[in-house]
Amino acid sequence: MRLKDKVAIITGGAGGIGSGMALAMAKEGAKVVIVDVNEEKGRETEKRLKEFSDSMFINGDITHKSSIQSIVDDVMKTYGKLDVLVNNAHVSKQVPIVDTTDDVMALSFDTGFYPTFYFMQTCYPHLKATRGKVINFASGAGLSGMVNQASYAAAKEAIRGLSRVAANEWGADGINVNLISPIALTPGVEQWSKAFPEEYQGMVDKIPLKKMGDPEQDIGRVAVFLASSDSDYVTGQTLMVDGGSIMLR
C-alpha cells in the first residue's frame, strides 16, 4: 500500500495506459480521480477502481481551461487535498509535415500540451501543500523523430521542456516532476496488430525485450514508483518504459 490515502488525478484515465495506471495506483491504496470525455468507459473503469479504493470518474473536456479549474475544485471538495497529478491525455493525427495544417497542430497542442500546462498551473498550490508529484508523458515520436508525427512529437517535446523547467522551479517546494515515455499494448494498438500483423510483429522485433508493455503491470508500476516516496530524489527525468527501444544518453 505504497500510496495509501494519496489522492491522484489521471487525465485520459478511462482506458489504455490511463486506466492501467489508475488500477495500479488504486491497488496501492490511492484515491484515484480519472478524467475523460468517454463517460461509458469512464464509468466502467470507476467501478473497477472502487473495488480497491475510494475513487471516482469525472466526465470533463480538458481542452477548456475553465473546465480544468472546475475539475480540480471538485477533487478538492471531495478529498480535501491532491498528492499526484498525471497528465496522460493526448489526441493527434498522423500526417507528413507538408500536410500538417494549423488545425492538425492545434489538435495536438490543445489536447496534450495546453491541458498539461493548465493542470500544472491549477494544481500547483495543492501539490505544494502536500509536497506532491507530477507525472507527465513524453514519447518516442519526439525523441527519435518518427515520420508523420510532427504535431505529436512537437507537443510531446514541448511537454518535456515544460517539465524540466517545473522540476527546477518547484524543487524547492518539494514537488517532483518527471515523465514517462511508454510503449504499451493498448486496445488501439491491439486492434492495429490484428489488422496489420506483419507490421506489428516487425515493431515488436525491434524492441530489445521483444514484447509490448502492459498498461497496468509495466507502465502502471512505474507510475506508482513516481507517485510514491520511493522517487523522492528523482525529478526532471524522462523514464523510458519502452522495453529498451530508446536508450537515452
Rank of each mutant, 00 (worst) to 15 (best):
S229E: 14
V75Y: 02
I9V: 08
V224E: 05
Y79F: 15
V204P: 10
V165I: 14
A30T: 03
A155D: 12
G145C: 03
I68D: 01
D83H: 15
K41W: 10
I159K: 03
N168K: 14
G18H: 03
T78F: 06
L3E: 08
K27C: 04
K128N: 05
Q149C: 13
L82P: 09
E169P: 05
D73W: 02
S229V: 10
A166W: 04
P208K: 08
I183A: 02
G142K: 10
V35A: 14
S19D: 08
T238K: 00
D230H: 11
E198P: 01
V86W: 01
I68E: 00
Y233L: 12
M120P: 00
T186C: 03
S67K: 09
W170S: 10
V91E: 14
E40I: 12
D110Y: 09
Q217C: 06
D61A: 07
E28C: 10
P115C: 09
G171D: 08
T130S: 14
Q94R: 15
K47G: 04
T238A: 00
S19W: 07
K77Y: 11
G142V: 05
E28F: 00
I207L: 11
K77A: 14
S55N: 09
T122H: 02
D173I: 03
M120L: 06
K81P: 04
W192E: 04
D61C: 07
L107G: 01
W170R: 06
D36C: 08
V234N: 02
I68M: 00
A223P: 09
G42F: 10
K47S: 15
L179H: 07
G244M: 01
G174E: 02
D214A: 07
A227M: 08
G29E: 06
N148W: 14
Q149N: 14
Y200A: 15
K6W: 09
E51V: 09
G243E: 03
I71R: 00
L248V: 15
F119L: 05
Q69T: 14
V91W: 10
V75N: 02
G236M: 05
K41C: 03
T63P: 02
G15F: 11
A138G: 15
V33A: 00
G236R: 08
L162K: 03
R2A: 11
H64S: 13
V33G: 04
G174C: 07
A26N: 06
M212G: 09
G213H: 00
V98I: 14
R48V: 13
M56I: 14
M247W: 07
D232W: 06
E51G: 07
A155V: 13
R164G: 01
V75P: 03
C123I: 00
F113L: 12
V91S: 13
A30W: 02
Y152I: 13
A26I: 06
V7H: 09
K93Y: 13
T45H: 01
R131W: 03
A22L: 00
R48W: 07
K128I: 02
P96I: 15
S70L: 00
E190W: 07
E46S: 06
V189S: 01
I34G: 00
I135N: 02
I180A: 03
S139P: 08
I97W: 13
G18E: 10
D99Q: 15
Q191I: 13
T11K: 05
Q94A: 14
K81Q: 13
T130N: 02
M25I: 05
L239Y: 08
Q201I: 06
M76C: 06
